[in-house]
């Protein structure tokens, strides 16, 4: 059935489409500006007004300097290490914890689950955590960052919801056939809950990629800084000048501008490139993580 569209509705549709288009521009403009400025000459960036929608005096100079910088390289390496090792630990511990929470007939399930969930509501605070990590001698090591981020209780709850959606009869029949906990977890539950596992893995991965705070309090040696911390140094503490040795003062200032944008692109592109392809998983995570109706 085709319902006749009145002129008010046409007007509304029109307005809506335009409004959404403007919103998209607001969302994308800063990103376009960054990408275009990263290909522009430093002096041109300083002279330009407003958002740069097209490279000015197209050049790869900023990227050459950024990639030539050893801190960007070590930052990438540290972040990749934290990402790969951290995510592996995240996945193992989170699935085990979630599996434990879904077990029946386990005497200490309640108290141990409570122990885990309570931490979502109360924490000892930043300073005692800092002193504890320092106390066990992890200060100055990337392992401190990995340990503190080893489990997110929120993600564990998402994983538990994923396991809960699998029919209990499957697990029971496997148990009757003599399958142990490891077997049940890895041969039955994880393959069936793969989409949920993908969701939490992505959450953890993006979290590791973007995190900087714990590294900033635990790691003192700039050679061990993860990428975001290197980025903070360049963007917010204005350390870009050290990348431009051998240039005159005004050149340093100008080149620093381009480098800023180049490092933002280098540090953000990986996430933004994979995101559209994995969008449905991320979105699914929001749905699972949201309170159930």
């Amino acid at each position: 059935m085709k319902i006749k569209v009145s002129w008010q509705q046409r007007l509304f549709n029109c307005f809506n489409v335009i409004f959404m288009f403007l919103l998209m521009i607001v969302m994308l403009a800063p990103m376009i500006h960054v990408v275009m400025a990263s290909f522009s000459e430093g002096q041109e960036i300083l002279n330009s007004k407003g958002i740069i929608f097209w490279p000015k005096n197209f050049t790869f100079e900023a990227y050459k300097r950024a990639f030539g910088n050893s801190q960007i390289f070590t930052g990438y390496r540290t972040t990749m290490f934290i990402l790969i090792v951290g995510c592996s630990i995240n996945i193992v511990l989170t699935t085990i914890g979630a599996y434990f929470m879904t077990r029946k007939d386990v005497m200490f399930k309640k108290p141990i689950s409570m122990l885990m969930i309570f931490t979502m509501f109360f924490s000892g605070g930043l300073i005692p955590l800092y002193l504890t990590i320092k106390g066990i001698g992890l200060n100055g090591s990337v392992w401190a960052v990995i340990l503190v981020g080893a489990i997110s209780t929120y993600n564990m709850i998402i994983m538990r919801t994923g396991f809960d959606s699998i029919p209990g009869s499957l697990v029971e029949s496997a148990a009757i056939d003599g399958a142990g906990h490891l077997k049940i977890l890895f041969s039955i539950l994880i393959p069936l809950a793969m989409p949920t596992l993908a969701v939490i893995t992505l959450y953890y991965a993006v979290g590791h990629w973007n995190s900087w705070f714990y590294a900033s309090i635990f790691i003192d040696d700039p050679k061990k800084y993860p990428l975001q911390l290197v980025l903070r140094g360049i963007l917010l503490i204005n350390e870009s000048s050290y990348m431009t040795e051998g240039a005159s003062d005004s050149e340093v200032w100008a080149a620093g501008e381009g480098i800023k944008y180049a490092v933002i692109v280098i540090a953000t592109l990986p996430v933004l490139c994979i995101y559209p392809f994995l969008q449905k998983y991320f979105v699914k995570g929001v749905m699972i993580g949201a309170v159930k109706e």
Binding site: I96, Y99, F100, L115, M116, G124, P128, L131, L182
Partner: peptide, 29 residues
């Protein structure tokens, strides 16, 4: 019946103790 499950969960409990409960105790400072 469940010893293997408790062994599995041990690292998870260790995480919560070290990263959450020891600091909660440390908050007495």
């Amino acid at each position: 019946k469940n010893y293997s499950l408790y062994l599995l969960i041990l690292p998870v409990i260790a995480f919560y103790v070290i990263v959450h409960y020891v600091p909660m105790y440390g908050a007495i400072i």
